[in-house]
Design a protein around this nucleic acid. Structure first.
Lengths: 127, 127
DNA sequence: TTAGTACTACGAAACAATTCGTAAATACAA
DNA sequence: TTGTATTTACGAATTGTTTCGTAGTACTAA
């Protein structure tokens, strides 16, 4: 069993992981372009963070050509689990339901999303 | 409009805020006792963090007697909103529903909690 | 009054995260 | 070949968080 998924990504790392989860393989340049749509950042800053992520085992990279290709190693599922779990403990006194209502109350969810959650809840009943 | 609620508490600060939200007024000693049920920490460490929280405006304190009495200034509601919102953006690509299902799937929620959420969802429909 | 205990204040060390400058290597075009 | 651009690697500065030791002060019991 590897440890990589238990490592807690920082906020910057999480931003990058999200891009990698979405896109699959990316160069530093590609990640950087996407990042800078939302915020200011120097290219070498992005590079450095991705290099550190590599050291930590959060990403892997193909260095066979000059421009390296990065992809996520940290599992999206595990990372999300970990973050949600931590948030529930840290800020919602361990109550998942309170977090859920908070999340639903303050983010506009589409009718489809609401229906999906209802269905999900009904299925939970029969377990 | 004050800024204090927009300040993002650190993890340690959040642990302490949770205690203050729950208990109301506390001495450093009381907070420290509760904290050390779960983890190791020196007394002056807890003290120092609470002093910094005071400087940041996360808590207020009554210094009229030798032993200071602390209470939360940061609003529980606003802080939770902020954290949930950040998590949805940071790790769930902006989808509240995905976070909700993650939260429900990996934490045992009581039947009552589930019912409360269902009711909540039904009420949402009629807004 | 004196010894011991509990508390605050403060400084500094240790650690982690972020940012960026610069140098070296590579590729490519003129 | 020579110059320009792109990329990686690396070191260092900066900032923020956490931890704890020590000193000074107040309270309390003997």
């Amino acid at each position: 069993m590897s440890l990589q998924n238990t490592i807690k990504p920082t906020e910057s790392e999480l931003e990058i992981l999200q891009i990698l989860w979405e896109k699959g393989n990316c160069t530093v340049r590609e990640v950087h372009e996407i990042l800078t749509q939302h915020k200011e950042a120097g290219y070498t800053t992005t590079l450095k963070i991705m290099q550190l992520m590599h050291e930590k085992g959060l990403v892997k990279r193909d260095t066979s050509s000059k421009t390296h290709i990065y992809s996520a190693l940290a599992s999206q599922q595990k990372t999300q689990e970990h973050l949600v779990s931590k948030l529930i403990d840290n800020a919602f006194s361990g109550s998942a339901a309170r977090l859920v209502m908070q999340a639903l109350g303050n983010h506009t969810s589409s009718k489809d999303e609401i229906e999906a959650i209802k269905k999900y809840l009904n299925d939970l009943d029969y377990k």
